[in-house]
Nucleic acid binder design. Structure first.
Length: 601
RNA sequence: GCCUACAUAGCUCAGUCGGUAGAGCACUCCCUUGGUAAGGGAGAGGUCAUGGGUUCAAAUCCCAUUGUAGGCUCCA
């Protein structure tokens, strides 16, 4: 959230409404405790510790009380207090007392983020409710529009974001300056839901889930599989061209492998449990790197062989908490477009840059522009990492150097590293504005160390290679989810599961269209003939709903001329066109992976 | 895993006060052979997520379970 937003009137409105809501809730539950209540992207929330669970029915009453408070035109009065005064003021508000301690130590703000120095402690009071708060607020409740906010939902939220601490009840609200803006926001939400990959995935027949198979385990239907397979073939070809070699590894391995890699002790909670076979333990693989490492280790390597780039669409299984599973964006079994580059220290930077270029090329092709690049570094206070700090230092520098060299616009996030090394992630938002990590590049000095990887150097001495873990898509599942939402299901021609739908004007034109379809199939265009009983108009409507790029309609005129009448998904009617001409144009669009439907004239 | 909701035909959804279930689309059949976003008619389709309970009677009320959704935590 930008500086601008924090200084805006909208920010003040939302912040103030959070206080008004807290007052309303405390009117209902005088013995309730309040925690924190900040503005957020489209509104605000406030966390409470209350004597009973809230239900959605309570929101109406809270809203009513809020409107009553607003109509009182109460000023938001700021005053500055000492830490001790604040403690007296909030003597029976334990969460506030904890915040005051934090403020006094100068350590942390209400979100637990470090702040430089001890800030001035201030409170804001409207009507009967005084809250520990840094502000800013509107001048008085009269500036709040009683018809431009709405309480949206109730959720559990752990105090200080720590699942070992009490779970509070959070009420989310949205707030705007005018009622019209509120309506527009609610409307936008509805429209976003129509673009949701889960909805489109069902509608377009791309994938499904079966409770019998298990939650978080997607089943790709034929159309979804075509889409996925097209993406895989594309990336394979790209990778072949820049020196990757394909490998294939099994879905399970001995637990011993993950003890060696260091995964097992650190991530036991998020792995599927091991299975006992004879007197050995196996588990579904949570990642592909140890397998690829074993391939590297299977033969002696010379510096002349490096870099070795091993690529695999590797399916991994992770036990994600049930409450965290979502559509295709968070699943328990997924396929990474994984590869591991084993390089000499001298090669590292060039290799890293080459990977970033590959990722950029893919994003360009898809027309992805709205993503953030994040460099995830180690949290020095956490125990969850393997490897010596010097190696981390080196790896982090290598990433930042390379990112600077490519001119990437990135931000650094402490504590977002993988357990074996720092990484560069590409982060996208879904239609509901949730962020997901897609592509990732990770520099790793640690696994080569743990597995004792070597190559023979020019000096006839063994040396340790450095690994780069990378996945431009991240996972096929998540990438396709974002892709569906990005295109709203209307995929560019090269990705569309059905590229051409042939529609007869009358039944007698079906044989002709079958011939055309055969020609299209011959050059690799995915086409089908709608020979159903409906009229042409209904068939067009159906094809339109399926977001098929090309509709070829044929009646007597077309048959006579060896032509088809071309209708585009955009609604454009191009009229009659010789079959050969359509084939040439469609092929050109498909092969160039263009996002247009027709070549420029 | 935790909090709050939701679950009725393949899909989208009605179903009042507790009285044994309905529409549109899709599907099947018949008529229609139609030139750029739904031609007409008929039919079939439901253990109201699952399992308990209350009741003369449960889609409806209660409990549990499963799944889904929005959050929280987590995310190699």
């Amino acid at each position: 959230m930008s500086e601008r937003y924090e200084e805006s009137q909208l920010y003040r409105i939302r912040h103030s409404l959070a206080h008004v809501m807290a007052q309303a809730v405390l009117e209902i539950f005088p013995e309730g405790r309040v925690a924190i209540g900040p503005p957020i992207e489209d509104g605000f929330y406030y966390d409470f510790d209350l004597p009973r669970q809230l239900h959605e029915a309570d929101l109406a009453e809270i809203e009513t009380r809020m409107r009553r408070i607003i109509s009182g035109n109460f000023p938001f009065a700021r005053r500055e207090v000492s830490a001790d005064e604040a403690r007296q003021l909030f003597a029976n508000q334990p969460y506030k007392l904890e915040l005051i301690d934090g403020l006094e130590r100068g350590g942390y703000d209400e979100n637990g983020n470090k702040i430089a120095e001890a800030p001035v402690i201030s409170t804001y009071k409207q009507d009967s409710f005084e809250d520990l708060c840094r502000g800013p607020h509107v001048a008085h409740t009269g500036e709040l529009n009683p018809n431009a906010f709405k309480l949206m939902s109730i959720a559990g939220a752990y105090w200080r974001g720590d699942s070992n601490r009490p779970q509070l009840q959070r009420i989310y609200g949205t707030a705007w300056q005018s009622g019209a803006e509120l309506e527009e926001y609610l409307h936008r939400l509805e429209e976003a839901k129509a673009r949701d990959h889960r909805k489109l995935g069902e509608q377009l027949g791309l994938f499904t889930f079966s409770p019998l198979v298990g939650k978080g385990l997607p089943l790709w239907k034929p159309k979804g599989a075509i889409l996925r397979d097209t993406l895989e073939r594309f990336l394979r070809a790209e990778q072949m061209r820049v020196g990757y070699q394909p490998v294939v590894t099994p879905h399970i391995a001995k637990v011993e492998l993950y003890r060696m890699s260091g995964h097992y002790p650190y991530y036991a909670d998020s792995q599927f449990p091991p299975m006992q076979v004879d007197d050995e333990e196996f588990m579904p693989k949570p990642m592909n790197c140890p397998h690829h490492i074993e391939i590297y280790r299977s033969e002696p390597r010379s510096y002349r062989d490096l870099p070795v780039r091993l690529a695999e669409f590797g399916t991994v299984y992770r036990y994600e908490q049930s409450g965290e599973l979502t559509g295709l964006t968070r699943v328990r079994g997924f396929t990474q477009d994984d590869a591991h580059v084993f390089a000499t220290p001298e090669q590292l930077e060039d290799e890293f840059i080459a990977v970033v270029h590959l990722i950029q090329r893919i994003f360009d092709l898809m027309g992805f522009q709205e993503f953030r690049a994040r460099i995830g570094t180690r949290d020095p206070n956490s125990e969850k990492y393997v490897g010596a700090p010097e190696l981390w230092e080196k790896a982090t520098h290598a990433i930042i150097n390379a990112a600077d060299k490519v001119g990437l616009d990135y931000f650094v996030a402490e504590g977002e590293a993988a357990f074996y090394g720092p990484k560069l992630d590409f982060i996208f938002r879904d239609v509901l504005k949730r962020e997901w990590q897609l592509g990732t590049v990770q520099v790793d000095y640690n696994l080569p160390e743990r597995f004792g990887l070597e190559y023979m150097g020019e000096d006839n001495q063994p040396h340790r290679p450095i690994m780069i873990h990378r996945a431009p898509f991240g996972s096929m599942e998540r990438f396709v989810a974002i892709l569906i939402e990005h295109f709203g299901g209307a995929f560019p021609v090269w990705l569309a599961p059905v590229q051409v739908r042939l529609i007869p004007v009358a039944d007698r034109h079906v044989p002709y269209l079958r011939e055309v379809a055969a020609k299209l199939a011959e050059i690799g265009l995915r086409a089908d003939v709608d020979d159903g009983k409906e009229r042409m108009n209904a068939k067009i409507r159906t094809a339109q709903g399926e977001k098929i790029p090309y509709m070829l309609i044929a009646g007597d005129r077309d048959v006579e001329n060896g032509a088809v009448s071309v209708r585009l998904r955009s609604g454009e009617d191009l009229g009659g066109m010789p079959v050969a001409e359509f084939i040439r144009k469609a092929q050109q669009i498909a092969e160039s992976k263009s996002q247009q439907l027709m070549p420029n004239a």
